[in-house]
Design a protein around this nucleic acid. Sequence first.
DNA 1: CATAATGTTGGAGTGTACCCAAATTTTTTG
DNA 2: CAAAAAATTTGGGTACACTCCAACATTATG
Lengths: 143, 143
Amino acid sequence: MECFTGLEVSPRKVDYLKFLLKKDETVRTTDISSELNVDPSTTTKTLGDLASHGYVDHVPYRGVRLTEKGKEYAQFLIHRHNILSLLLTHYGLSAEESCHEVSRFEAYVSKDAIEKICASMGHPTVSVCGKIPHGSCKMGEHS
Amino acid sequence: MECFTGLEVSPRKVDYLKFLLKKDETVRTTDISSELNVDPSTTTKTLGDLASHGYVDHVPYRGVRLTEKGKEYAQFLIHRHNILSLLLTHYGLSAEESCHEVSRFEAYVSKDAIEKICASMGHPTVSVCGKIPHGSCKMGEHS
DNA sequence: CATAATGTTGGAGTGTACCCAAATTTTTTG
DNA sequence: CAAAAAATTTGGGTACACTCCAACATTATG
């Protein structure tokens, strides 16, 4: 699979996908809505969009979950976020600032670039090296 | 002055402002349109928008030019582009790739972050250090 | 000064993102 | 287990960014 550029999902949808991966199970519309601070109807519509592109399986009134494709994609999204955040912490930004800054533009950085940056950094085990504490990269903080 | 976050201008408008600074004189609608590959009417409308925010002075049928505020802002835009491009070249991306990649997300990187990155890099004289050849950062290539 | 070139207006379309009110479905509970 | 409560979806709108086309206005030029 893994045939994507990393630019196929809009900024906001990235948030949905990341949240869904974090939950790793069937999630309810309300959970997403309160996490992302949007009206439930907005969530329903966005979910329909993600579903139409094969990222999630959405059973009306019952819940959503990532498809295999969605899971793979979401993993890339998290990885991209982590790599970019780590990168910025090397340039004088705190973990929090990096995380916040990155969440604003990450959706526009290609998988290609991320792979090169990641390789150049020696494929850091970001969430293990401690450079980007989990706590500072929790989702939902970037609203 | 310099009281801006760097996030006030949308991606596309950044292109207009950068082009206007490059020209550094009264520019015609057609010049902009052919540079950015958009219909002249699109240019006219975008110019109206930039003018309403004080970045340019637009005299209908006669031309546009940056205001002092616009010039200052555009200088930041160029600086941001250069700093970010330079940064990416440090991570395995070629000058061309960096330039192209950066043009996709630069509009979402704050002045604050740029200042920190720039300081952390020792305030490089980007266009002089040769790391980002002028030729590879010409505007209009990012379409 | 008439025609060509240039520029602007008005109208319209796409895509993203969002909300509200009303209708529907599921869940709870008396 | 039916009625009320909670959750979800639909339908209808708003708003912003960006864009094009056709028609109209202005400016430049032969």
